[in-house]
Simulated scan of single mutants.
Amino acid sequence: MALNNTYDARLAQQETAVGAGAQLLLLAFLGAAIGLGPAGWLTGLAFGIATWAVLNRALRRSQPLPFGPANRVTLGRAILVGGVTALVADSFESSPPLTLFVGLTAVALILDGVDGKVARRTGTSSALGARFDMEVDAFLILVLSVYVAMALGPWVLLIGTMRYVFVAAARVLPWLNGALPPSMARKTVAALQGVVLLVAAAGVLARPLTFALVLLALALLSWSFGRDIAWLWRTAAGRAGSAGYGAAVPSPVRPAEVSAAGRGRS
């Protein structure tokens, strides 16, 4: 068993190394195709190195298991997100080719619906895979919000940062770490953010309509977060009441695949 675990761990590390190499190749392609500037290169490399380091650390801390086909799909999405991140960083100096930017982003968003199905069909669902999927989603939304904010204003950044603010608040308010029930509305609102931001980035709609669409997406996201926070507050208050006055209330445990901000494996 120990030998199998060591073998699986080595294979997983090899796959993340291949992913890091693929990220470098994508950046090299972007550099050759559009002349990626220093900001794009540095940001893309930083993303690739951080992804490789964090993923390897998570793999070492979890029970050694095969990397699995679903995680390969998510890793492929992460590589695409690294390319989008490099293009957005480069856009502060020169606008990226819209076709390339939209293409990379669209494929990353489409694959978001693939890794979860692959995990279920192959029986390889895991807390690590769900967390990996969710973090890639969240970072792509953050990067897209930065890009769209350059055209519509800094208020768009609320879409990309809301999840990270929630995570930071949960460190101070433990009741925010409570487990949330499954919600199709939460999944739909979360998926809608990427689609709306991509449409806004593509510039296919008139500016007033784009502004209204992104504002609606922000309103729906705020509603989703507010609803989940209210549910967590009521649940924590009910648990405290049932425990009795002055009794210690254990902190609820939040599964890695469920949060107020993301979908986990969709």
Rank of each mutant, 00 (worst) to 15 (best):
T122Q: 12
T122K: 10
T122W: 10
G123A: 08
G123F: 12
G123H: 11
G123Q: 08
S125V: 14
A127E: 15
A127C: 07
L128C: 09
L128Y: 09
L128N: 07
G129A: 05
G129N: 02
G129Y: 08
D133S: 00
D133Q: 02
D133N: 01
M134D: 12
M134K: 12
M134E: 11
E135I: 03
E135D: 10
D137G: 08
D137L: 07
A138E: 07
F139T: 10
F139S: 06
I141H: 09
L142N: 03
L144Q: 06
L144D: 04
S145Y: 05
S145H: 04
Y147A: 06
V148M: 01
A149H: 00
M150I: 01
A151E: 11
G153A: 00
G153I: 01
G153P: 00
G153F: 00
P154H: 10
P154S: 10
P154Q: 09
V156G: 00
V156W: 00
L157T: 04
L158M: 03
L158Y: 03
I159N: 01
I159A: 05
I159L: 12
I159F: 03
G160P: 07
G160L: 07
M162S: 12
R163F: 06
R163Q: 02
Y164N: 08
Y164T: 05
Y164R: 11
V165P: 06
V165T: 12
F166Y: 09
V167R: 13
A168Y: 12
A168G: 14
A169W: 13
A169T: 14
A170S: 15
A170Q: 11
R171E: 10
R171V: 10
L173I: 15
P174H: 11
L176D: 07
N177R: 15
N177D: 14
G178I: 13
G178K: 10
G178F: 13
L180R: 08
P181A: 06
P181E: 07
P182Y: 15
P182N: 15
P182G: 12
P182I: 12
S183T: 05
S183C: 04
S183H: 08
M184A: 14
A185D: 15
R186E: 08
R186A: 06
K187E: 12
K187M: 11
K187C: 08
T188P: 05
T188Y: 10
T188H: 05
V189C: 12
V189L: 13
A190F: 06
A190L: 08
A191P: 11
A191W: 13
A191M: 14
A191E: 07
L192H: 11
L192M: 15
Q193P: 04
Q193G: 04
G194E: 02
V195K: 00
V195C: 03
V196D: 04
L197S: 03
V199E: 07
V199L: 10
A201M: 10
A201Q: 09
A201W: 05
A201D: 06
A202D: 02
A202S: 06
A202C: 04
G203C: 05
G203D: 01
V204R: 00
V204N: 00
L205T: 09
R207S: 15
R207W: 14
R207M: 15
P208T: 03
T210R: 01
V214C: 03
L215D: 01
L216M: 13
L216K: 09
A217L: 11
A217D: 13
A219I: 15
A219W: 13
A219L: 15
L221S: 14
L221T: 14
L221F: 15
S222W: 09
S222T: 14
S222A: 15
W223Q: 07
W223I: 09
W223V: 11
